[in-house]
Every structure is written in C-alpha cells, then in structure tokens.
C-alpha cells in the first residue's frame, strides 16, 4: 500500500483513538471501583462543549481543555451524588446524565451563539513535535507530532497501569471494586473512593470530549459525541479492564472509524453510512465473541450500603 495512505491512516487512527482512550481510561477508574458509568457519553459531550466555548472566548485552547476537565469533574461529582450517595440505579442515573448533558449543551450553545447556520470554529490546539522520532515512517507524525492533550493521553496509559498495580491507593481502588465490604473492613472508605473515581472519570471523559472539539473538529455540533462514550464502555471491556488493553482496543476502534476516510480516498463505492456503522457493529461483534472471557471487577454495578 502507498506510504502516504498508510501514514494518513495512522494519523487518523490515533486522532480517532484519543477521545476513546481518554474516556475509556476514565471509565476504567470508575469501573475498577465498582461503578458503571453510562453517563460517560454525557461527560464527553460536556467536555467538548465547555472546551469549545472557553477556547472561543479566551482564544486559548489550553484554557478550554482545562475548564472542560473541571466541568467533567463536576459532572462526575453529580453522578457520584446519586449513585454513591443515594444508591441510585447506575444505569438510570447514567442515562439521565446523558439527557442532562444533551440538554445543557444544547441550551447553552443556543443561548450563547444563537441558532445560526454556520458552525463556530476555533483555532485548533497546537501540535508539538518530538525531533527525530517524528520522522519515523508511517506513524512518526501520528504519534510524535501531537497536541499536548494527545501526549497526555499516551502518557496516562503507563501511569494508570502503574498506579493501579503498584500503589496502595490503586490497590484500595481495586479492593473496593472487588469486595466493598471486605475493603471497608480493612479501613478503606468505600464511598469516598467511589466518589473520587467518578470525579476522575468525568474529568478524563471531558478531556476526551475536549480533544474532539478543540483538536479534531475545531468546532462544536450538538450531539457531536455520537456515541463515543458508549463505545468507550465497550473499549473497557475489550481491553479487559487493563490500561494497556484499553490502549490497544482504542486504537483498534480508532482504526475502524478512520477506515471510512481511507476507503473514500481510494474511491471505493461503498455508502459511507456503512463505515459510520462500523464501530458500533464491531463493538457488538467483539462483545459477542468475548462472552465470559474477560473478568470484570466482582462488585461492578452493585450499590453499597454501609450497615
């Protein structure tokens, strides 16, 4: 295959993968603590919107990303209030969070920009290249000529892997997800851990959304998350609840998503909707094949009441 096409493919794979990666890493933290966060989609969307608005008015994409992370953290806190504090059903609360995000971003967008036809654009976040490595064939540009947020997401993988496996707080987190009662008996404050996990999840998911709006699309469209939050849920499962696995899975889904552009470039006459369907169908196929082989945290999805 042509070098240029491969390079393009690599670049778009990484671009597609980063939001998934960030959201999935956030979800990893939450799920390792025993909480399923269906609201990931909403958090991603909130992040995308907040980043764009902040970047538009301040001219700084960095500020946009920073505020997005903050907004995501707040959303995580909101989710924690219902799911950890009030012991609400995690699926329903997550679905409600998505609705809320959809509504809030929609209302806010129209309130700020009015119902215009043209899209609001911002200048994308700047990319920083790593000398030498940047010139590697095929994926050199994709990986080593990235925005700071992109680099952060790469670095986060080994960081999170280390934190989960080699630190005491990471161990405590895993304990809460496996057996909250036993964790409490060992002195771990289960509710606090789960709350913090959701806050981190929200922050990371929002960062993923920020990448979408400020790096990838340079704009915001209502509902632009387009189910990435849900795909990220599948990424966690396919990645077998490990940070490195999630990286691979995110790249895999990123590749699938970006194939559509490449096929169009090749002039293949397949309706583009088929490609847009691909990530979702793939998720189903992979999950179906994965039945029972991956082991989620034992207490996943179960509420915890202190007697």
């Amino acid at each position: 295959m042509d070098q240029a096409i491969l390079t393009g493919l690599a670049a778009s794979t990484v671009t597609m993968a980063v939001p998934l990666l960030l959201a999935a890493l956030g979800e990893l933290i939450a799920e390792r603590s025993g909480t399923i966060n269906i609201g990931l989609e909403g958090m991603l969307l909130m992040g995308a919107f907040t980043a764009l608005i902040a970047a538009y008015f301040s001219g700084s994409s960095a500020l946009g990303i920073g505020l997005a992370v903050g907004a995501g953290a707040l959303f995580g806190l909101l989710m924690a209030y219902f799911v950890v504090g009030a012991n609400a059903n995690q699926v329903v609360a997550g679905a409600a969070l998505n609705l809320l995000a959809l509504g809030l971003t929609g209302v806010a967008y129209r309130a700020v920009f009015g119902v215009t036809g043209s899209a609001i654009t911002v200048r994308g976040a700047p990319a920083f290249s790593v000398p030498v490595l940047r010139s590697l064939p095929v994926f050199g540009a994709a990986v080593f000529q990235q925005t700071l947020l992109g680099y952060a997401s790469f670095v986060l993988v080994p960081l999170l892997a280390f934190a989960l496996a080699r630190t005491l707080p990471g161990l405590a987190l895993r304990m809460v997800g496996e057996n909250p009662r036993a964790a409490e008996a060992q002195g771990v404050h289960v509710k606090r851990v789960r709350t913090l996990a959701l806050v981190a999840c929200g922050a990371l998911a929002a960062a993923g959304g920020a990448f979408l709006s400020v790096v990838y699309a340079n704009t915001f469209v209502e509902g632009m998350s387009a189910g990435r939050g849900f795909i990220a849920l599948a990424v966690v499962i396919v990645g077998r609840w490990s940070a490195w696995g999630i990286l691979l899975a995110a790249l895999f889904f990123g590749l699938a998503s970006s194939l559509q552009f490449q096929f169009q470039a090749l002039g293949v006459a397949v309706p583009y909707q088929l490609f847009l369907m691909l990530p979702y169908v793939l998720t189903l196929v992979v999950l179906a094949g994965y039945a029972g082989r991956a082991r989620p945290p034992a207490a996943l999805g179960q509420g915890y009441r202190r007697d």
Partner: peptide
C-alpha cells in the same frame, strides 16, 4: 473477607 482475584500479598 478476602479478595479473590488478588494475590495473598495484595
């Protein structure tokens, strides 16, 4: 009150 998937040391 043990964690099944964790090791003895953990």
């Amino acid at each position: 009150a043990l964690f099944e998937v964790l090791t003895v040391s953990e």
